[in-house]
Amino acid sequence: MGSFIQYTLQGLAAGGFYALAALGLAVIFGVMGVVNFSHGAMYMLGAVASAVLLKELGVGFWGAIVLVPILLFLFGVLIERTLVRWLLALDPLYNFLLTFGLTLIIVDLVKKKYGVSGLPYELPAGLDGRLAIGGVSLSKYQLFAAVFSVLMCLLVWLLLTKTRIGMIVRAATEDSERSRALGINVGMWVTPVFGFGIALAGLAGVLASPFRAITADMGTNFIIILFAVVVIGGLGSILGAVMAGFLVGLVEAYGQAYAPAFAQVLIFVLMAAVILIRPSGLFGREEVS
């Protein structure tokens, strides 16, 4: 039993991180309707940026957690302004292909510059070691990453649903013509959303640096799991992404413990099952057209 509780805790901790990592995908899709395939590459850029900041400028984890999302926000804005914007009016497939192409370019550029073996990174001071309660224990960093992730998800949710900014953004994207008629500068509000989603991917990358290998390929496999998370949760639903994050974390942990060889497959079995029963995901809205 003790080990079952241990596995559950580990699953929840991993799940919190998955939720944050998938959050940017959900935001960008929910608000803009863009399936951002480059999310994994942005996550990788976040991790690589924190490693480079540490090595070249001596900026540690806490500095990176502030700086890197800002850098990636700007990068996201640049991409939205120069590329994504022009395809918004077309079939979503075009932006999907665009971001897929971007991924290939970014990953190969990073490989060229920093090689393929991982970049060194260390645990932030004060977060090493473990926290033990009763018979179970978790690494402090894992716990921190999970709690921090959930708080971020909550903040983003509040921002989008409870504030005036969130309302404007949602109105601007849901019905841009009418919003324009009401005097909202739609173009001004859409661009930051994309930047914001990319910044969230970068934040997840910073958070991953101390416990994941920082390589050009780190996002390539991860994006697949993230897609599973957002599909299970319902594309575009923030609450869905968070809940599905935890669900996927748990399924993975139990898989690793009780059926090691199938740990990853189980995630996709879950995804298939959810799609069969609720095609729009656990928390997704049915599209009305």
Binding site: S3, Q6, Y7, N221, A253, Q256, A257, P260, A263, V265
Partner: peptide, 20 residues
């Protein structure tokens, strides 16, 4: 002898299990 998926990012529970 614990098999893990390849490639794989999250090893937390594999490690707990291996140490159990």
């Amino acid at each position: 002898k614990i098999p893990t998926p390849f490639p794989n990012d999250n090893f937390a529970t594999f490690i707990t299990k291996a140490n159990s």
